[in-house]
Every structure is written in structure tokens, then in C-alpha cells.
Design a protein around this nucleic acid. Structure first.
Lengths: 356, 356
DNA sequence: CAGACTAGGCAAACCGTTTTTTCAAGTCAA
DNA sequence: TTGACTTGAAAAAACGGTTTGCCTAGTCTG
């Protein structure tokens, strides 16, 4: 390239990067030759010389005992896609990192300028590796016990409350929560918000723990045991959508009509929820927004700009669908109390299970 | 590092990479020091010196007029996840590439050693960019019109036939296909297989084109027009799952019972399909296998090994669920012809649409 | 005991940029 | 005319490794 233009590599570099002292004529000439030759500076060499690779890592943290695949959740896929776009917009590319034994070694194999970790769990190996290297880090969701870093998060507490209020407005009096033991800030928020909402409204908390993976299966189990217990709930909220779908199936199997006898809702919107029968009411988290903001925040850090805010909140919204549709009867009476009364006066709500 | 171990950088490099002539004692000593210091060779420098970045690009090609997001399909997410794992297994990392105006420039910003392009469309800009750079390339799905390259693909022709046979065995006589105009090898295969199956079995082809995106909405439209036409189908197969879910909704809206009056199936398994009511029969494509094999093939190419086979086929399988469950009546009679006869003798299959 | 060979390890070249420094030539003022 | 300053561009030093080639001892071999 340098020879082709009849100048030194220095001049080429200066011409192409708008640096140095060059007359416009030379600059243009070099650029012209570069264009003709289809010359592109070697990215690796640039990275080595410049000390920045223009590569960002995107990792999904996860607990060892909950081996769910990335692909299980539309949430992650959407976030990832948005993050890729945002990165590209700023001239960065995204490297995918898995949180397994091999994932850790990726930081050795690739020089990333910074990392986004989704739903971090304290002590996670990827998190530790990032810290050890003192890489700029943005998390989506906070790191429980260490909320000082840079993060983008939904306001899950507010979100949970608005969902619970929605269920109450639809006539629910005995709202149960299905969730996992809190490891991420998200599940902790959900749990606390639920408990405080229960305290505020005088509802007795009913919590069913999901174990055995965040799948339809575990939701089915948890919902079944809730619905079969004494004093079963008249609404079930799951902190993830797949178990909520399982709850739908469980209700069906027990002959409990949704939404007439039981309201069901889940967090995270998905095709699966939309396609369910009845369609699943969801707490929308706007993962595309989260992915975008996380990358933009990270880019600020990488490029040495002090971000205006260290923490960003993305609003949630209740996406009401068939699974929590208020029955006609309830619709005519004023919201909370009256709806609850109408519900209470209904005759025994259990039918014989269609299959036991 | 070199000083710490009291040797030259050459020796460090040799010791850590198992090259050069060094006594085991020295090698071990250097490795020991490296471990203590937590020394990791700079990946960028290695890439520059070695000429290989250990980075692979993963791109999803797409037609300009069909702006669907990556996240729309569990298929892509699963493939991507598997590809990441496989890459890591061989010491590579995956860089995500979007097929938009900015996506193209990524090849300038990052030096990838090779690329996987999912469902390539001839003339696509990413494809052209990869070719121009003479990067090793593996596609999942073939490039229509140029099938000589390296690719991993399902046998969609066989898959389509087995699905159609399945529908026929369940009593379908008038199987319609909902699909997009063929741009990828996959949609072309599906179309051809359908047409040849129709020719073989004497079924008259009925094709509804999906436009306006590969969504539930477009499937709803297409299915509605099929079901409202003269001589409506008694089975609908969609070459993607989301439109199939739309078909389910359309049938419901028209008061047509699935599977009793209409069988519905789609390609690509997903949570959404599993959660639908009735659960959607799907042609499983094993995207995890495809992603894995594509990366392994690409790694062979990148590392200069001649792969045993240039083309790999991944089997498909019919995952039969409620949406194509044979009615009891048909179950007792021998497969195809008798099932069809039983179906034919049924009384008029249309009910009044519940909403018009 | 000389010559050839082997082992061990280092120095230097190289990868392709960016950045800093140097330098020659031209311009201007005194 | 000379010194100071400006302009344009190249040379050199990094960046942090890998690779090639060379050198020195020590060990065989005849």
C-alpha cells in the first residue's frame, strides 16, 4: 500500500486516520489509492499498536446447578441481538462467551476491551476473571452484594408490584409466586417485592420454589403442588415464563379453568407465551433496550468517558393477555375490593381433575 | 515474564507452546513461573505474529425485504449457542455478525479466521465480503446456485417427505403448504419436496405464500385465506413454526377444530410450539448439531486440514404432537388409504366461525 | 585428540499498524 | 545572509509475541 502510493507507511497511517501534518492533496491521493486497492488496515495490528481490540465480550452467567441453555429464553436472544447492533454502531464487535469450564479461558484467547455479563451471580468464574483482568464491566442486573458497579437493570420491584396490582385488579385474592431461590438480583428483587406487596396488602405469601431447571416441567410440578394444597391460590405468578407455561398445563390437567378460576402470569414476554392457550400475561422487560444500553455504557467506559449515570433503569410493562383476563362479572364492579368480593361469592372453584 | 523466569522471551514462548528444543526441566520451570505470575500471552500479539486470530464470524444472512430479528427463532439461538461451545472446544471464539449495513464493515474491524453463514442468500453482502477476502467459509444450508462449497444442512427433502407422509398417515388428503418465496436452499428444498410429493401421491398442490414477515400474523392471514377458499385443505404445513402458530389461531377463529378437522404442523421445534394448544407437531432440525458441525468443519478449514467430507447432512425428525394426533377412528384402520376414507366419510367439517 | 554432532538457549527479524522523533527544505524576519 | 520557524514526510520505536538462525558447550566417534 505504502509503495503503491509512493509514500511511507507513516504517511499512509496519517492520511487514513486524519492525523499528522499533511497537505490535503497528499491525504486525498493516499485515500484514493487505498480505495482503488481495496486496502483495509489489518485490525489485529491496529489492536496491538493501539492497545484496543474493539472487541467486547458478552457473557451469560449462570448457577452451576441450573444448567439452562442460552436458547431457552427469548430474553437472552433478544438482548444479544440488540447488543450486537449497538456494538456495531460504535465500531465494536461482540464475542460470545459461555459460562462453562471452557468459557473462562476465552479471556486468554481473545483480548476484549470490556465485558457485559448478563444476570451476574456473585463469585461466578467469568465475573472473577473479568475482575482479575480489571476489564471494564457492565452487568445487566446488579451483582448481589455489590451494587456499586456499572449496570443496567429493570426496575423489578416496581414491575413486580404493578403485576401484582394487575392481578388484584382482575380479582385475585390469593396470589402465589413461583420462583427460584434468589441468586441473581432479579430473583431477589422479585421475591422481596412480592413479600413486601403481600405485607402491604395483607395477602398471605405463598411461595413455590422451582427446582429442577427453569422449564415447563418444573413449573408444572410447582403449580400442581400449589393447586392441590389446602387453600390453593387463585393466581400464580412465575418469575420466568417457561414455568408459567407449565402452570398453565398443570391447571388444565387439574381441570382448573384459566382465567376463570385461576389467573396465571409470568415474567418475560415470549412467542411461547403469546402462542399459549390462553395467551400468557407477561411482564415485558424490554431486553432489546437493556442490551443496547449495556453496550453503550460499556463503550463509554472503554473509551474513557465518564458515563453520566452508572446505573440505568429500563421500565417494565404489564402485557395483559387472556390468562389474566377479568371475567365479565368482575368487569362491571369497581376494581380491587369489589372484584375480590365477587370472586369470593363464587361457588366452589374446584372441578374434578380431568386427569389426576 | 522472561526476566522473572531468568530466561529469554524465546524460551518462554517455546516452553509455553511446546516448541523448540528444551529439556523438560526448563519447560516445567517456565510454566511454573507463568502460572505463579498468572501470565497469559497477549492474544492480539499472538494473532499478529501467528497470522491467525482464533476468531470465527457467525452471521445470519437475510433478505432485505424480510427484516426478521435473530431472536425470532429459537432455531438460531440454539444453533448459535452450540456453535459457541464447539468453537470454544477448539480454542476459538465466536464473533456475532448482523446482516445490516453496518454488519458488513465488521470484517474490517475484526480479523476473523473464517466464517459461518446461516441460511445464505446468493448475492448477500456478507457472503460477498467473505468471498472477497477469501475467508474460509462454511454455510448452514447451501448457497442456492452454488452448492460446491462447504456446508452443513438438514436433508430437508427427506424431512419434508416424512412430515407429509406423517400427515397422510394421520388421515390428511388435502395438505397445503405455507411458505415464503424460495430464497434460501431450505425454502427451495421444502417447496420442491412438497411439489414432488404431491406429484407422487396425486395430491393437488396448494401453496399459500407468506409475506409480511415470518410471524404468527402472516401465518394467520395465509391460513385464513386457505381455509376460506373453495376446497380448503385438511392439513397445513408451514415451513416455519411461527406462521404455523398463526395457522392454529386462524383455525380457532374460524371454528375449525385442530386436530379433528385440520392438522397443523410446522418446521423447527420451539417452546412456543410445545406450549401451544394443541401442541404443535414439528419437524425437528437439530440446530445444536448443525451449529456444532459447521464450526468443526470450519475449524478444519482454518487449520488447513482437508475435511473428510465437504457436505454434511443432519437428519430431521418428525416430532408428533397434539396438532396432528390421529383421531381414534382412524387409529383402528390401516394407514393411508383407509384413514383417508374414514376422513372422507365424516360429516361436513366446517362449523360456523366463532368470529368472522 | 580432532572433528562432527547434539543440546540448550539466546539474539534478531518479523507480524502490520500507530505514535513519536527526526530531518531536510523552504520561508520569513532581522 | 543568517538564524528561527514552518512544512511535509520519512525514519525509528513501540505493541507483545513467534519463528528462524546462530552460537556455545558438551558429547560422541573414529
Amino acid at each position: 500500500m505504502a509503495e503503491a502510493a509512493g509514500v511511507s507507511v507513516t504517511t499512509v497511517s496519517h492520511a487514513l486516520n486524519g492525523k499528522g501534518r499533511l497537505p490535503d492533496a497528499t491525504r486525498r491521493r493516499v485515500q484514493e489509492v487505498a480505495r482503488e486497492l481495496g486496502y483495509r488496515p489489518n485490525a489485529t495490528a491496529q489492536a496491538l499498536a493501539g492497545g484496543r481490540s474493539r472487541l467486547l465480550g458478552l457473557a451469560v452467567s449462570q448457577a452451576e446447578d441450573e444448567p439452562f441453555a442460552l436458547s431457552d429464553f427469548a430474553y437472552f436472544a433478544t438482548l444479544m441481538s440488540a447488543a450486537t447492533s449497538a456494538a456495531l454502531e460504535h465500531g465494536y464487535a461482540l464475542v460470545l462467551v459461555h459460562d462453562d469450564d471452557r468459557g473462562e479461558q476465552i479471556w486468554s484467547q481473545v483480548n476484549v476491551d470490556g465485558a457485559v455479563i448478563v444476570d451476574p451471580i456473585p463469585g461466578n468464574r467469568l465475573l472473577e476473571a473479568v475482575r482479575e483482568r480489571e476489564l471494564p464491566l457492565v452487568t445487566t442486573g446488579r451483582i448481589p452484594g455489590d451494587e456499586d458497579g456499572y449496570w443496567v437493570d429493570n426496575d423489578h420491584v416496581a414491575g413486580m408490584r404493578s403485576m401484582l396490582d394487575h392481578l388484584a385488579r382482575q380479582g385475585a385474592e390469593r396470589v402465589a409466586l413461583m420462583t427460584t431461590p434468589p441468586k441473581t438480583s432479579y430473583t431477589a428483587d422479585a421475591l422481596h417485592a412480592y413479600e413486601s406487596w403481600c405485607a402491604d396488602t395483607g395477602v398471605e405469601p405463598r411461595i413455590a420454589w422451582l427446582d429442577g431447571g427453569l422449564t415447563e416441567g418444573s413449573g408444572y410440578e410447582a403449580a400442581t403442588s400449589l393447586l392441590r394444597g389446602d387453600d390453593p391460590p387463585d393466581a400464580i405468578y412465575s418469575s420466568l415464563d417457561r414455568p408459567a407455561l407449565g402452570a398453565l398445563l398443570a391447571a388444565h390437567a387439574l381441570g382448573i379453568a384459566v382465567p376463570d378460576e385461576l389467573l396465571v402470569a409470568g415474567c418475560t414476554d415470549s412467542n411461547a407465551g403469546r402462542a399459549a392457550e390462553p395467551a400468557l400475561t407477561a411482564l415485558g422487560l424490554q431486553p432489546e433496550r437493556i442490551g443496547q444500553l449495556a453496550v453503550e455504557l460499556l463503550v463509554d467506559l472503554v473509551e474513557g468517558r465518564e458515563p453520566a449515570r452508572h446505573h440505568l433503569h429500563v421500565p417494565t410493562r404489564v402485557i395483559a393477555r387472556g390468562s389474566t383476563r377479568r371475567r365479565q362479572r368482575a368487569a362491571v364492579s369497581p376494581p380491587a375490593a369489589a372484584g375480590a368480593a365477587a370472586r369470593r361469592s363464587r361457588p366452589g372453584r374446584r372441578r374434578t381433575p380431568s386427569r389426576p
